[in-house]
Amino acid sequence: KLATQLLVDLAEGCHTHHFNSLLDIIEKVMARSLSPPPELEERDVAAYSASLEDVKTAVLGLLVILQTKLYTLPASHATRVYEMLVSHIQLHYKHSYTLPIASSIRLQAFDFLLLLRADSLHRLGLPNKDGVVRFSPYCVCDYMEPERGSEKKTSGPLSPPTGPPGPAPAGPAVRLGSVPYSLLFRVLLQCLKQESDWKVLKLVLGRLPESLRYKVLIFTSPCSVDQLCSALCSMLSGPKTLERLRGAPEGFSRTDLHLAVVPVLTALISYHNYLDKTKQREMVYCLEQGLIHRCASQCVVALSICSVEMPDIIIKALPVLVVKLTHISATASMAVPLLEFLSTLARLPHLYRNFAAEQYASVFAISLPYTNPSKFNQYIVCLAHHVIAMWFIRCRLPFRKDFVPFITKGLRSNVLLSFDDTPEKDSFRARSTSLNERPKSLRIARPPKQGLNNSPPVKEFKESSAAEAFRCRSISVSEHVVRSRIQTSLTSASLGSADENSVAQADDSLKN
């Protein structure tokens, strides 16, 4: 292990032709098999893994070397290190390495390699500790012929580059190093199909959405987006994914797998022009299946994007999809995704031109529960009313008269009656009930004795009459309010007539 670390330190600071010789020695160290011998017992696995620490030291050392060589000349050094790393990870899946030390190597290698970024000039870069990406002036992410390196360097940008540029090249004859992302992409596909350690798979799935944002990485080298989509959909639809995973937390289920895969599918929607129609349908189907899991909100957001990006695919699945959405409970976490999906859909009339009455009724059935102001915040309630109004205007004229009683009944049950079921009123009724029952229970537990009763009969009569009056008032709060309003209006009217009579009498006395 110490000798391997010494080789790594020497290679990191070497800029001459001896660098390749040092890498040859490190490569021989990495070539050791990580498969346990067949006769190895389970209690000896930890000791055997400790004997392979030099392999881990070599791989982690290459990660440090690549981070240094990416910004220094010659660029061919970075290319050689990158290829060695990718080849080593491929061996893991070729020979099915399952030892804990092998999983640790893959975890740290993917953690580093999935941080690679590219700008519009195809320059590769890595983020620093502050998250700012520094791009290399010597390494690009696409394949290029050595003699055409300078031509590639002087080509115009596709868009303004992001991030601070690296140091300027030493001279005009500098050759750019090619670090094609397709090599890593193929290893990522192998990981999605064969990885057995949940920690490694979770890391890859968590980092892929951010990497897919940099389309330069994908399009400048032959990366098959179709295969990526197929691998992701197979993970969700195939039963073998959960069987092969180990190291998963207790209670791990298909729902947890959906939570990890759906963000990658959402990021892949922007590549729909490069996906086969069959793959697009598979993607939409997987998102529909996710509606029954805890990732339902993410799936609804993804389907909203699909309705804009892939209208030809979503239009066929939309009638059944809208009916499925009615089975989702009206909760605060689902309110905004569902209502925004319906609001977006209302502005795309070509998608729902074939809707029948059942689909329009489903839209109103989804939106009406969110009009309850005692359960949802003001934004959700306003958005629900907006969706109902928009869809009522957009639905066909023959359907409107049939939906009017349905909508008014839903609004009455969710908006008007919600004020009668407020917690304050319920607590008031509970308190009044307890007050009504309390005197009775006290009389049963403690019967009054005439000799020891010091309270006069008049006081008892007053208290009983007050309790009886309170019971009468607490029967119905709404009736009490109505009666008080009527009494107030009658009182004001009587006072007004009394004032008029007094004024008339005063005038008569003055005349006399």
Rank of each mutant, 00 (worst) to 15 (best):
residue 49 S to E: 14
residue 49 S to W: 03
residue 49 S to Q: 08
residue 49 S to G: 06
residue 49 S to A: 09
residue 50 A to Q: 10
residue 50 A to G: 09
residue 52 L to Y: 07
residue 52 L to M: 11
residue 53 E to Y: 04
residue 53 E to R: 03
residue 53 E to M: 08
residue 54 D to S: 04
residue 55 V to S: 02
residue 56 K to A: 10
residue 56 K to T: 05
residue 56 K to W: 04
residue 58 A to C: 05
residue 58 A to R: 00
residue 59 V to D: 01
residue 60 L to F: 11
residue 60 L to Q: 14
residue 61 G to E: 00
residue 61 G to C: 00
residue 61 G to S: 02
residue 62 L to F: 01
residue 64 V to W: 06
residue 64 V to H: 15
residue 66 L to Y: 03
residue 66 L to F: 12
residue 66 L to N: 01
residue 66 L to I: 05
residue 67 Q to G: 06
residue 67 Q to S: 08
residue 71 Y to F: 08
residue 71 Y to C: 03
residue 71 Y to Q: 04
residue 71 Y to W: 04
residue 72 T to D: 07
residue 72 T to G: 06
residue 73 L to N: 09
residue 73 L to Y: 12
residue 74 P to H: 03
residue 74 P to T: 03
residue 75 A to D: 03
residue 76 S to V: 07
residue 78 A to D: 00
residue 78 A to Q: 01
residue 79 T to E: 14
residue 79 T to N: 06
residue 79 T to C: 14
residue 80 R to F: 02
residue 81 V to S: 06
residue 81 V to W: 01
residue 81 V to R: 00
residue 82 Y to F: 12
residue 82 Y to L: 04
residue 83 E to H: 13
residue 85 L to N: 00
residue 87 S to V: 05
residue 87 S to H: 12
residue 90 Q to H: 11
residue 90 Q to S: 13
residue 93 Y to P: 00
residue 94 K to R: 10
residue 95 H to L: 09
residue 95 H to C: 11
residue 96 S to L: 07
residue 98 T to P: 03
residue 101 I to G: 02
residue 102 A to K: 00
residue 103 S to D: 14
residue 103 S to Q: 06
residue 103 S to I: 06
residue 103 S to A: 09
residue 105 I to L: 07
residue 105 I to Y: 01
residue 105 I to T: 01
residue 106 R to C: 00
residue 115 L to G: 13
residue 115 L to I: 05
residue 116 L to A: 05
residue 116 L to F: 07
residue 116 L to Y: 02
residue 116 L to P: 02
residue 117 R to V: 03
residue 120 S to T: 08
residue 122 H to I: 01
residue 122 H to E: 02
residue 122 H to P: 01
residue 122 H to L: 02
residue 123 R to F: 04
residue 123 R to E: 02
residue 123 R to W: 02
residue 126 L to E: 01
residue 126 L to A: 07
residue 126 L to F: 10
residue 127 P to L: 06
residue 128 N to D: 12
residue 130 D to Y: 09
residue 130 D to N: 09
residue 131 G to F: 03
residue 135 F to E: 02
residue 135 F to L: 03
residue 135 F to A: 03
residue 136 S to C: 01
residue 137 P to N: 08
residue 138 Y to M: 04
residue 139 C to P: 02
residue 140 V to E: 02
residue 140 V to M: 06
residue 141 C to D: 02
residue 144 M to H: 07
residue 145 E to G: 11
residue 147 E to T: 12
residue 149 G to F: 09
residue 149 G to K: 07
residue 149 G to M: 10
residue 150 S to D: 13
residue 151 E to Q: 10
residue 152 K to P: 13
residue 153 K to P: 12
residue 153 K to G: 11
residue 155 S to D: 13
residue 155 S to P: 10
residue 155 S to I: 09
residue 155 S to A: 13
residue 156 G to R: 09
residue 157 P to G: 13
residue 157 P to Q: 12
residue 158 L to N: 09
residue 158 L to F: 11
residue 161 P to F: 14
residue 163 G to D: 09
residue 165 P to W: 14
residue 165 P to R: 14
residue 166 G to M: 10
residue 168 A to T: 14
residue 170 A to T: 15
residue 175 R to A: 10
residue 176 L to F: 14
residue 177 G to S: 09
residue 178 S to Y: 13
residue 179 V to I: 14
residue 180 P to L: 02
residue 180 P to A: 04
residue 182 S to E: 04
residue 182 S to N: 08
residue 182 S to V: 06
residue 182 S to A: 06
residue 183 L to A: 10
residue 183 L to T: 11
residue 184 L to Q: 03
residue 186 R to F: 05
residue 187 V to Q: 05
residue 189 L to D: 02
residue 189 L to G: 02
residue 189 L to F: 02
residue 191 C to W: 00
residue 192 L to T: 02
residue 192 L to R: 00
residue 195 E to I: 00
residue 196 S to W: 14
residue 196 S to G: 11
residue 197 D to E: 10
residue 199 K to E: 14
residue 201 L to K: 01
residue 201 L to D: 00
residue 201 L to M: 06
residue 202 K to D: 06
residue 202 K to H: 07
residue 204 V to C: 04
residue 206 G to Y: 11
residue 206 G to H: 11
residue 207 R to A: 05
residue 208 L to F: 03
residue 209 P to C: 13
residue 211 S to R: 05
residue 215 K to R: 09
residue 216 V to R: 08
residue 216 V to S: 09
residue 217 L to Q: 06
residue 220 T to F: 02
residue 221 S to A: 03
residue 222 P to D: 07
residue 224 S to K: 10
residue 224 S to G: 05
residue 227 Q to C: 10
residue 228 L to W: 01
residue 229 C to F: 04
residue 229 C to I: 05
residue 230 S to L: 05
residue 231 A to H: 06
residue 231 A to Q: 14
residue 232 L to Y: 00
residue 232 L to E: 00
residue 233 C to I: 10
residue 235 M to T: 02
residue 236 L to A: 07
residue 238 G to R: 09
residue 239 P to D: 14
residue 239 P to H: 12
residue 240 K to P: 04
residue 241 T to E: 06
residue 241 T to F: 10
residue 241 T to S: 05
residue 241 T to W: 07
residue 243 E to T: 09
residue 243 E to H: 08
residue 245 L to C: 03
residue 246 R to P: 02
residue 248 A to F: 11
residue 248 A to I: 10
residue 249 P to C: 11
residue 250 E to M: 10
residue 250 E to K: 13
residue 251 G to M: 05
residue 251 G to R: 06
